[in-house]
């Protein structure tokens, strides 16, 4: 009997009677990480890593019933053992391991294999069945180390000190990773859009070391941000919020920026290739390291990755339809 199945509410473990990252309200929701497509409101009990509590409550409301766990701490749901292990995606992100009798399944959530100073590194968990994401599941996606890309961002910022430099990136995870990487190059203050500012505070509370930051909204009206770096979520691009900055240079940091067409159609002046998801070599390598014989591929390029794993490595790999979105192509 499969340990995990897909129900209309989401990924379900019948023996333990819980859901993982459900997309509807349920009794018990185990949450891999606090991104919106994995952590949705309305469930009765949320179980997630202790370190993600602050952000999860900011997103779902402080009134939620929350049970925190440490990485690796064994929990028992009915007859099944459950533990959370670092996924290297964002602060507090976890893979969820479930064990029943001699069988082990792992749900990866979202993950990456590159070094990221803002969260715990991915841990390989051997298992029989691995449920993996495939946001960037095509061999055209191969990442450089984050530090290399952030150095490019730093150079771009320094190349024009007469204008504000507006960098768009996801508010939770990507922004803090950039702020943490930037400590290698500078200690100048970076300015943050409100949405990023509040999440960054949670990272600081969790002890992540980042360069100094201030909220843009706390600056006096007369302040011009000349030569400053400002981080903002993609939704702020071309919004009225942007009017505050006179003739800014703009850029977007995302894995999608690897492809020229994707970069050009967005209308940012520059694109930096930086993703919190595994690239193609990372996905293939991870699946192989888990030694799993059975692989379910959830969101992204699920068909391509599943077919490749089947053909090249003889694994029993198949796509699994879910409502996860990964790094939204369009935000």
């Amino acid at each position: 009997m499969p340990l995990i199945t897909v129900r209309p509410e989401g990924l379900y473990c019948e023996i333990g009677d819980f859901f993982i990252d459900p997309w509807r309200a349920v009794d018990t929701a185990l949450i891999t990480h606090a991104h919106a497509d994995h952590a949705r409101a309305g469930s009765h009990l949320y179980v997630a890593t202790q370190i993600s509590e602050g952000i999860l409550k900011k997103r779902l409301g402080s009134q939620i019933q929350f049970q925190g766990v440490e990485y690796g701490e064994p929990l028992k749901f009915g007859n099944i053992w459950v533990s959370f292990h670092p996924a290297g995606h964002v602060l507090g992100s976890a893979q969820i391991r479930v064990e029943y009798k001699d069988e082990v399944w792992v749900v990866s959530g979202d993950y990456k294999r590159c070094v990221d100073p803002s969260c715990a590194p991915f841990e390989v968990i051997p298992c029989h069945t691995f449920i993996t994401e495939a946001t960037f599941g095509l061999p055209i996606y191969t990442w450089q180390p984050g530090a290399t890309t952030v150095k490019q961002i730093y150079d771009w910022w320094q190349s024009d000190r007469d204008r504000p430099s507006l960098l768009f990136c996801y508010a939770f995870g990507k922004a803090q990773r950039i702020l943490a990487e930037l400590t290698q190059f500078t200690d100048q203050t970076v300015y943050l859009h409100g949405a990023i500012h509040s999440l960054t505070e949670s990272y600081r509370t969790a002890g992540v070391s980042m360069i100094p930051t201030l909220s843009t909204s706390d600056q006096p009206r007369s302040y011009k941000f000349k030569g400053d770096l400002i981080l903002a979520p993609p939704s702020a691009h071309r919004s009225s919020w942007m009017k505050r900055f006179s003739q800014p240079q703009t850029a977007f940091a995302s894995g999608w920026m690897a492809v020229r067409g994707a970069r050009r159609r967005r209308g940012y002046e520059r694109g930096f290739v930086l993703s919190d998801h595994a690239d193609w070599p990372g996905l293939v390598q991870t699946v192989r390291q888990t030694k799993a014989q059975q692989v379910y591929v959830t969101h992204g390029q699920s068909e391509a990755l599943a077919r490749y794993l089947t053909e090249q490595y003889g694994l029993e790999a198949m796509p699994l339809k879910t409502l996860f979105e990964g790094e939204g192509d369009i935000e």
Binding site: P139, I140, V259, Q301, Y308
Partner: peptide
């Protein structure tokens, strides 16, 4: 495999660029 190249091409929309991206690895 040819199908994988085709999938990549569909994402990139340009053979020259698809090959350049794939050669990275």
């Amino acid at each position: 495999p040819e199908w994988l190249f085709s999938d990549c091409y569909a994402q990139v929309g340009d053979s020259a660029e698809t090959i350049a991206l794939l050669l990275q690895d």
